[in-house]
Design a protein around this nucleic acid. Structure first.
Lengths: 166, 166
DNA sequence: ACCTGAACACCGTTCAAGT
DNA sequence: ACCTGAACACCGTTCAAGT
């Protein structure tokens, strides 16, 4: 069911994801969905989980600068593919099981940058918050007529600089 | 009309803002709204404009660190008051007329920090993006069980450090 | 020309009737 | 006990009928 819902969201956008539309896609009575999902919110939760799992995570063996760069790129790409769904990330706790992939990827990069272990969790929260905000802004159109690539390149320089001098 | 809509959004949340509910609040036929607003999206646009205007902006005469701190605080407060509406900021260009207040406030602070004029626009975009992401995360519950005040205090230290050494 | 009620094409969810 | 169709209480918006 989640597969079909995800496919529907990808193909026609989040606004097309309704109980009734998903049910029709499955050739099933709308009420039948409630056996699997409890709620419309449950359906959306599943979609956000899936989005987190679809974010591509870099090799931990790569240069840490490259790790961060790749991670930022894949988050931005995911946001562009699912702009409305991406916004829901702000409404879910960052500590769900599906969130460990991306979080560990940031942990690995920060560790590789030489950041002391005790500073990593906070640094990850701040860095991820920035990346999320940036990707959401770009995908949502807040940067209209701007230069997101240039802005992100500059942000990466700054981040590398701060991490190198920490 | 916008006053009543804003009041409704504040009192009962964004999901209670429907054409029909606003019309009822005004003791008017739902169709009458279309004379003033064209669209439901138009109603929401008005709400986001108002939200931007409601963000409290610091005195430009204060210490620049204090300016940034106050601005962050008022953005976070606004996000907590209107969590769903706040998310819509990501879906609107940052260059609307109502956005100049907050943007100029950041400009002023960066100028006071001694940042060269030509670097200010990009710095403002990155800084505002972080603040927006942070405020949205906190208000939306992404930081559940976290320590947003501590995280923000640390972020401010970092920002001051970067700006001082620029 | 302007306004607006009824109507259309949807929603998510409850609940009672059917098996 | 399980399942589900009809029904309920909503939506945003169109459009034709009324003034």
């Amino acid at each position: 069911m989640l597969d079909v819902t995800w496919e529907l969201a990808t193909r026609k956008g989040l606004s097309a994801v309704t109980m009734r539309a998903v049910a029709q896609e499955l050739d099933v009575n709308p009420m039948t969905l409630y056996r699997h999902v409890g709620d419309k919110q449950g359906l959306l939760d599943g979609l956000v989980e899936r989005l987190l799992l679809e974010i591509e995570v870099p090799e931990p063996s790569a240069d840490w600068r490259e790790q961060l760069s790749l991670l930022a790129r894949s988050m931005r790409a995911m946001a562009r593919r699912h702009p409305d769904l991406f916004l829901l990330l702000f409404q879910r706790p960052a500590v769900t099981p599906e969130a460990v992939g991306p979080r560990n990827a940031v942990y690995d990069a920060l560790r590789a940058a030489g950041l002391p272990e005790e500073r990593i969790p906070r640094a990850e929260r701040l860095l991820s918050t920035f990346m999320l905000g940036f990707a959401a802004s770009e995908a949502g159109g807040r940067f209209r007529d701007g230069d997101p690539d240039g802005d992100m390149a500059f942000a990466e320089e700054l981040i590398v600089q701060v991490l190198a001098g920490a």
